[in-house]
Write a protein that binds this DNA or RNA. Structure first.
Length: 476
DNA sequence: GCGATCAGCT
DNA sequence: CACAGCTGATCGC
């Protein structure tokens, strides 16, 4: 993770001029009040120049309306398009032309999933619009707390690992389980999965949390974090936070997940990719659309054989939506799930998903259950609670790992596990961009450095990943 | 009793 | 394993 040397990434894990916490030895925090002075002129510079996107190389943002209605035509087009298309980097020539006839065009997950982008979505950003001055006050608050905490601390507190910190900035990413992080005055959250937001509770008071609007809603709704700490950022929009240019990009991971692009005052650019798995692992997954097609076909086959089959899809709190959405569309049945998940899914604000959600478990043969409930024992009991409405269960466990021990890319070789009336398929469903998409995107964007924080637990995979990124960035 | 944290288990 | 959770035990408030 060589960053400080600018153009030539070196072998060091992180720059030598970082402190033991991985922050630059030179204090870069504008806590002393400089955030408004220096920060605003810095910000003003960017805003005055209009679109200085060259470093980021992303398209300037379009009004959401200009983008919607582009697809939708192709029926249940659930194809996972490339990141390039997702980010509008390489546009098909006649993009905006015909409404709906260009299935190749995709600029957002909404379109990827054939969902109309909710009009009101952008509103959330306005209520807590972040600004340098705003952040300034956070610094002050945070400082005060620091001293207090030292006193009664059990000393058992975990220390924030260096790879969750963004060099040269007072930022951390997905670092909520360490209490107050020394030197950190803005906390970013990439997406709403437990291992990333872990530590966030209604007692959070260590500083502002920057994330996408959708993630922000979930943080407030599910974790009861005080709204005053939650700062939603629009995707594809450049913000100046503590003097650093920050842009969230669609990650093609779970709903609300974002990549974070940082551009420092000195011109260094970092791409934070919490949402990417190790490239080599990614390359072993079949495309999402193939998996979804397989699931839909399998469901239809079982239903032909036994019309009273209950279709179950296992899922964590968020993620895997397009699997059951595809089944819902193909079978033209609603989606039943419990109240807690209904609340979460409704909060996405996606009309096509919302209108398919049902609260009556006997009115739909398609149920979404927690992954933990997708096993033979639980499903057998579950079937019994449904009053003979269903005679068999066909369940899918979409996981990012079942694949490794299983069958290779040949979905048809998947052997379901049957026990009595319950049949369970483990399907290799990765909600990450593919190897080639990641490679092409990184090579296009050419950040000084790619900062992954998944798969960094052991040094070996970290090194593999960095070697991979270096190779891409070296090319050309 | 509630919440936070951790070990253990998928 | 971990693209993400769960349960149950324990401890402090």
């Amino acid at each position: 993770m060589a960053a400080a040397d600018g153009e030539t990434p070196g072998p060091l894990p992180f720059p030598a001029d970082l402190d033991e916490n991985g922050f630059p030895a030179v204090p870069s925090s504008p806590a002393a009040g400089s955030s408004d002075g220096g920060g605003s002129s810095f910000a003003a510079d960017f805003y005055r120049s209009g679109t200085d996107w060259s470093a980021l190389r992303a398209r300037p943002s379009l009004p959401p309306e200009a983008e919607s209605g582009v697809k939708e035509k192709g029926g249940g087009s659930l194809r996972q398009k490339s990141l390039f298309q997702a980010w509008g980097i390489k546009r098909p020539p006649r993009e905006g032309a015909g409404a709906g006839d260009s299935p190749l065009v995709q600029k957002s997950l909404f379109q990827a999933w054939g969902i109309e982008r909710p009009r009101g979505e952008a509103v959330g950003a306005a209520d807590a619009s972040p600004s340098p001055s705003h952040s300034g006050s956070w610094s002050a608050r945070k400082r005060r707390r620091g001293g207090v905490e030292e006193a009664g601390e059990v000393k058992k507190t975990l220390t924030c690992p260096f790879y969750k910190k963004i060099p040269g900035t007072p930022f951390t990413v997905d670092a909520f389980r360490y209490g107050e992080v020394e030197g950190c005055s803005a906390y970013f959250l990439t997406h709403f999965h437990h291992d990333h937001y872990g530590g966030l509770t209604k007692k959070w008071c260590h500083g502002p949390i920057y994330c996408s609007a959708l993630t922000a809603r979930l943080v407030k709704m599910c974790l009861s974090v005080d709204s005053e700490y939650v700062c939603p950022l629009e995707l594809d929009t450049e913000y100046i936070i503590e003097g650093v240019s920050v842009t969230l990009l669609e990650a093609n991971h779970c709903p609300g997940a974002a990549l974070i692009h940082f551009r420092l005052n000195d011109g260094k650019t970092y791409l934070h990719t919490d949402c990417f798995a190790e490239p080599l692992i990614l390359s072993r997954f079949p495309p999402q659309e193939e998996v979804i097609d397989f699931v839909v076909r399998t469901a239809q086959r079982y239903l032909r054989k036994q019309p009273k089959t209950l279709i179950v899809v296992g899922a964590y709190s968020i993620g895997k939506e397009n699997v059951y959405l595809a089944i819902s569309r193909a079978l033209e049945v609603p989606i039943y799930t419990d109240a807690s998940r209904r609340r979460i899914l409704q909060s996405f604000g996606w009309p096509d998903l919302s209108k398919r959600i049902s609260s009556c478990n006997e009115s739909s043969p398609l149920h979404v259950l927690p992954l933990g409930a997708v096993n033979h024992e639980s499903l057998k009991k579950y079937l019994e609670t449904l009053n003979q409405k269903f005679l068999a269960v066909l369940a899918f466990r979409p996981t990012g790992w079942s694949f490794s021990e299983a069958t290779g890319k040949e979905l048809d070789l998947i052997k379901p596990k049957s026990n009595g009336r319950v049949t369970i398929y483990g399907v290799p469903y990765s909600e990450h961009s593919s190897f080639t998409e990641l490679r092409d995107f990184v090579m296009f964007l050419r950040p000084q450095k790619v900062i992954p924080t998944v798969n960094v637990g052991n040094a070996a995979s970290r090194d593999r990943m960095q070697a991979c990124f270096r190779e891409w960035l070296k090319a050309l």
